[in-house]
Amino acid sequence: MIKSEKLVYEYTRNTDDGSEIRSKVLDGLDIDIKDGQFISIVGHNGSGKSTLARHLNALLTPTGGTLWVNGLDTSDENNTLLIRQNTGMVFQNPDNQIVANVVEEDVAFALENTGVPTGEIWRRVEKSLATVGMLKYRSTAPNHLSGGQKQRVAIAGVLAMKPKCIVLDESTAMLDPGGRKEVIEAVRELNEKENINIILITHYMEETIYSDRIFVMNKGKIVMDGMPECIFSDVSVLEKYNLEAPPAVYIADRLKKAGLNIKKSVLSTQDLVSVLAEYKKGVNNGNSNKGS
């Protein structure tokens, strides 16, 4: 459970002429995320989404307001290690977050840090690698893996801590389409089977359509908060925040604006096909009714 009240993160920068510039990266956020939810956070560069992500496991602490993760105040240093075990984090660059030279040793890194006994480390490493489908690469050097595989190893490294929540900070940004799919499928499964909170920060809107809720961030504020159906109901609003709707949503939106009567929400290509199938049926039925 993640909850915040008027969360503010502000930093001051000294310019060359000696004056100070203060910028609010996070501007009074009130968040309430329940256990087991899949949340996506979208927003253009500089909207504050990565800064928010770094608050969730106390890599950054608020300069104003309060943030609780599982009831623990992130500003209290005594809570830091516990919060980081509860909320794991996967970063953007797959190469820059792998510490060890062998996959299994990397997955064990957090467990070694938190003093888990050797036998338990082996059990948890094995289970985590199996969960993300990387067990057969356990003795491989990370440099020999693809981007998607590296990110799955990073997820396993987090998973080994038995976290309640995993934050993915643009973890798919540097991957090719195949790698992105691998990572998204892995985290969806964790959400559904293990009931782990997923907080997915991404630029790719098509990755967000499976989430329970989407936050749209702009200038340090959450400007939209709702289910995908609701967020994608008006493409022009998204465009205002420099975001791009997935192609199916975009096409459905244009069709609607051209007068086609689409009432159901469209998130994927499959949705759009079934809507148009019904449309065709409706037209045919209407026709046959008239005929009889």
């Binding site: 980081r84 794991g88 970063f91």
Partner: peptide, 17 residues
């Protein structure tokens, strides 16, 4: 940052795989 996020806090109290 990634090491911090994975609870790294020096050699103290560390176990080994």
């Amino acid at each position: 940052l990634a090491m911090d996020a994975r609870c790294y806090h020096g050699g103290e109290g560390r176990t080994k795989m």
